[in-house]
Design a protein around this nucleic acid. Structure first.
Lengths: 208, 208
DNA sequence: CAGCTCATGTGAAAGCTTTTAACATGAGGG
DNA sequence: CCCTCATGTTAAAAGCTTTCACATGAGCTG
């Protein structure tokens, strides 16, 4: 709570910006992006309610920072799961799907900030850039998958990427988190994997 | 503004409950479910900020009412589009998908209340019931589609319904509304139709 | 029709939040 | 050493939520 190392309270926090982001992530995880409060994040960091304004223009700017950071972590997680498509694109795509849902479940705060925050268009800049990077991973995976098809039956990789993304996001949003409304007779991972398998079959791709 | 027919101001509104719901729908449409305010809905209806509490336990209860009413309208729209699967289930399924996206675009306020409001579990009762009715339409459509497959290659209709719902919701959430982040080289409707066609092909169903 | 009752409205108030403005502190450079 | 400016603080305005006591009048009841 902003004490300096020797035990005295320090006027300057030291790394308030990061502390606020961390507090925001925790609070969003507990009460959703709507319930998150600038003032409460300040309290959690041990500073006055006005202090955060030295680091973020307003509440939305902090939310946007969380979203951008979330997309960065998301990108890293997807990238690791894809692993350049090894050993083969289809197996790697399945890992990618699992990683997608895994992120949504394990980091609900980030996921909510990324997709459910409804940020105003002003500060979308950085968030959009980070989101594009995440989508690029999916796009590369779709490229690799499509490359396995003969050119005369090869669908647009962008479309395939959009389909996979939409299905994954739909499942994550509807059934992905533990507290979600509806109960399933299967795990979200199984649902996504089955859906992608049927879809790939429809493209003419069959796992060996 | 709560004037009686002869021009005098009336102490009692008459149908405040409905007026509040209508105001909430308009406000959610303008500023999202997060930006919506109980007090502003009261102003729009021409009553004091305390008046809504005679009709709704709190702000969330009004939001839940909007969500439930949204699901009811959604159900009706899907039902009309499905039209008992005439003339054939595959053509009807395409109409169903279009109707899904159409609703999300034309009634963003309802759609947001239904899927992005993050209502607390207390008053989920009525919302869940209304949501189940909407899903039942999709479920019946999946049944009809699956019936066209020989029993030895027939997938669980519930799974098919969940796949179609997830894909439709994913597309609606990511690209469905006009102000959404990402631009597409196609309409959401085209994206959904293409995805469902590939998926059905994967199930072994081909439109004649 | 008089009168009662209770659903539905009002006003005031407490406690929260956001945001701005003026002021305070102290870390680090010249 | 001291000056500056980034980074805190306090104070205050404005708005929202929610509750409480109180007001009103629509409709039943005798």
């Amino acid at each position: 709570m902003s004490w300096s190392k020797d035990g005295r309270r320090s006027y300057h926090h030291g790394n308030l910006r990061e502390a606020l982001v961390a507090a925001a992530v925790r609070l969003i995880g507990e009460k959703g992006p709507g319930g998150f409060t600038f003032a409460e994040a300040a309290r959690a960091a041990g500073v006055s309610p006005a202090a955060p304004y030295r680091h973020f223009r307003d509440r939305d700017a902090l939310l946007a920072d969380v979203a951008a950071q979330g997309f960065d972590r998301f990108t890293a997680a997807l990238e690791a799961a894809w692993n350049d498509g090894a050993p083969d694109p289809l197996a790697a795509l399945e890992r990618l799907g699992r990683a997608y849902l895994d992120f949504a479940r394990r980091e609900p705060a980030y996921y909510a900030a990324m997709f459910e925050a409804n940020l105003p268009a002003d500060l979308h800049q950085e968030v959009t850039r980070a989101g594009d990077a995440a989508f690029a991973v999916l796009r590369r995976a779709a490229d690799a998958v499509c490359d396995r098809l003969p050119t005369d039956r090869r669908p647009p990789a962008l479309m395939v990427a959009l389909h996979v993304w939409s299905l994954a996001h739909g499942i994550a949003a509807l059934f992905g988190r533990d507290g979600t409304r509806r109960k399933l007779p299967m795990t979200p991972e199984e649902l996504l994997e089955a859906g992608v398998l049927v879809y790939l079959e429809g493209l003419g791709l069959r796992p060996e």
